[in-house]
């Protein structure tokens, strides 16, 4: 499953609405435990000289009624070199994150607890502002959980 963060970067100051596209190496974004994930991302609509670093990660997090828990399986931070003088550049930023997925936790769609897997691309801009784009994929094939119906006596 591919998600695209859409939006156009403003021409002045740090652009805050870059477009991030992530392509997974499986067509439906469904992985099995132990699979190799390889996600290629492309960031457009941003002046690359305004970006100081990119962080790419593969992580799981919980959603639902409880507070969010986060587990990061793959993480890489890439500081971008800055060259003076800096002419504006609309050249897209591209990158790849790859690695082996663990056997757990599997993606889970429960009632008050949900577990999601995602690729996150986080851009850090000059001035300290950041922008994160999240692209969900699925690990395993666990059916959606529903509360059991009350027993009929």
């Amino acid at each position: 499953m591919m998600r695209t963060a859409a939006g156009l970067a403003p021409s002045s100051s740090p652009p805050l609405s870059p477009q991030v596209t992530v392509d997974f190496n499986v067509d439906d974004g469904n992985y099995a435990p132990g699979d190799n994930i390889r996600a290629r991302y492309r960031v457009v609509g941003v002046d690359r000289h305004a970006v100081t670093a990119i962080e790419q990660s593969v992580a799981w997090y919980t959603e639902g009624k409880g507070e969010e828990d986060l587990g990061v399986i793959l993480f890489e931070r890439k500081p971008l070199e800055r060259v003076e003088p800096e002419p504006a550049s609309a050249e897209p930023l591209v990158g790849v994150i790859s690695g082996k997925l663990p056997p757990s936790p599997l993606s889970y769609e429960g009632v008050i607890v949900k577990i999601r897997w995602c690729v996150r691309v986080r851009l850090f801009f000059v001035g300290g502002r950041d922008f994160v784009s999240e692209h969900v994929f699925f690990l395993g094939d666990v059916p959606v959980a529903r509360p059991p119906e009350p027993a009929v006596s």
Partner: peptide
Amino acid sequence: TAAMGAAPVSWH
């Protein structure tokens, strides 16, 4: 599911 192994790398 744990032993399904690595999927071939291809771009979609």
